[in-house]
């Protein structure tokens, strides 16, 4: 995933938007296939049955997929969302996003085994690093502080026991 394939030129962005149409089409197909599998004998007490809504929604998804594809091929473009901190003049910066996702995934893998205090520290520290902060020690202390504070805050304040993991005896 190099930056060139990304929203660099209008033309390439147009083609990539067809991916959304494909996603919608796939979602519609999945919903319809799943609906066809539902056995729904007619019953007086439930004439609509569990299949009607999935069928309607599947068709809606397929129709919007087709309409979007036509729209994009005719030159229609979705407007990227703006915001206070959003600068749309440069393309998507995968060098920031991928490490962020990495930190997120690491948290998922660690949360049960190592516990929230460790996985949360990793998550915050990794995210701050991905977003460009280079104060390693300060960031590490803040991360650990946040993870500890939420762990105890949830435990004492809300009665929610976040996983302690390998620190079970220590915390």
């Amino acid at each position: 995933m190099s930056q060139k394939t990304d929203a660099g030129t209008p033309a390439s962005k147009g083609r990539s938007e067809l991916g959304i149409a494909a996603l919608l089409g796939a979602a519609g197909a999945v919903v319809l296939v799943d609906a066809s599998r539902i056995a729904a004998p007619y019953s007086q007490s439930d004439p609509v049955g569990p299949r009607t809504m999935p069928l309607v929604i599947g068709v809606l998804l397929l129709v919007s997929a087709a309409a979007l594809a036509v729209n994009v091929l005719r030159g229609g473009r979705g407007q990227a969302e703006e915001g206070e901190d959003v600068d749309l003049t440069h393309p998507s910066d995968w060098k920031t996003v991928l490490p962020l996702v990495g930190a997120f995934v690491l948290n998922i893998l660690l949360i049960d085994a190592a516990g929230w205090v460790i996985s949360g520290t990793v998550l915050f520290w990794g995210s701050v690093w991905a977003l460009g902060s280079r104060h390693y020690i300060r960031d590490g202390l803040i991360s650990l502080g946040l993870a500890l504070a939420t762990f105890y805050g949830f435990y004492f304040g809300l009665g929610i026991k976040l996983p302690a993991g390998i620190l079970a005896g220590v915390l």
Binding site: A103, G120, L123, S127, G132, I142, L162
Partner: peptide, 21 residues
Amino acid sequence: RPYLYAGILFFATLGAFSVNM
């Protein structure tokens, strides 16, 4: 900004996780 957006991800994870653990 790194703290702000890392914080959003952190609390999003925490919130979603604490629903069903």
